[in-house]
Design a protein around this nucleic acid. Structure first.
Length: 159
DNA sequence: GTTGCGATAGTCT
DNA sequence: GACTATCGCAACG
């Protein structure tokens, strides 16, 4: 399991290093293959740009926690909080390659026929892994939601 | 393969 | 009251 130090760095670095890592929740798991860094109060596209609000509070909190938000009235998106306490910055997890619990993912994602389509989008992967806003603020270093280093971490090509 | 659209509700101005 | 870090489906090429 990745330590808190991993997350206590600039969001852009955390994002890059998350690629290839394994996201685990219960019996389901997948390889992180697409991410997006949000750079905090100076990033117009980031929620944190609005400052500390009820919603954005966890982005300004300690690193290594989950920021899960509701979007478009239907979907939920998972982010990892980066940067030291007091600084905003997070990494949106955009896509996973299913590795474990595929049957469970298929049950949660009735519409996806191909395995490749189970978690190839931010709203899809939260459904496939059973991640909801109940996990907002969850500590990635102590809870059922974890990020692990693969056994044999081979060099990867980043596009 | 791409384009266009409707569903749906929380958040901020 | 406008906007949105999305998805699935239908229509088309």
């Amino acid at each position: 399991m990745l330590s808190r130090d991993f997350y206590a760095r600039p969001a852009i670095e955390v994002a890059r290093d998350c690629l290839g890592k394994i996201l685990v929740h219960g019996i389901t798991a997948g390889r992180i293959v697409e991410v997006e860094a949000y750079l905090g109060v100076n990033d117009r596209a980031a929620h944190a740009w609005a400052g500390v609000t009820d919603r954005t509070r966890v982005i300004f909190g300690p690193p290594g926690h989950a920021y899960v938000y509701f979007i478009y009235g239907m979907y939920e998106c998972l982010n990892f909080v980066a940067e030291p306490v007091g600084q905003a910055g997070c990494v949106l997890i955009r896509a996973l390659e299913p590795l474990a619990g595929v049957a469970t993912m298929q049950r949660r994602r009735r519409t996806a026929k191909r395995e490749e389509d189970l978690a190839n989008g931010p709203g899809k992967l939260t459904l496939a892994l059973g991640i909801s806003r109940k996990l907002n603020g969850a500590d990635l270093t102590t809870s059922a939601l974890q990020v692990r280093r693969p056994k044999n971490e081979a060099p990867i090509e980043i596009k």
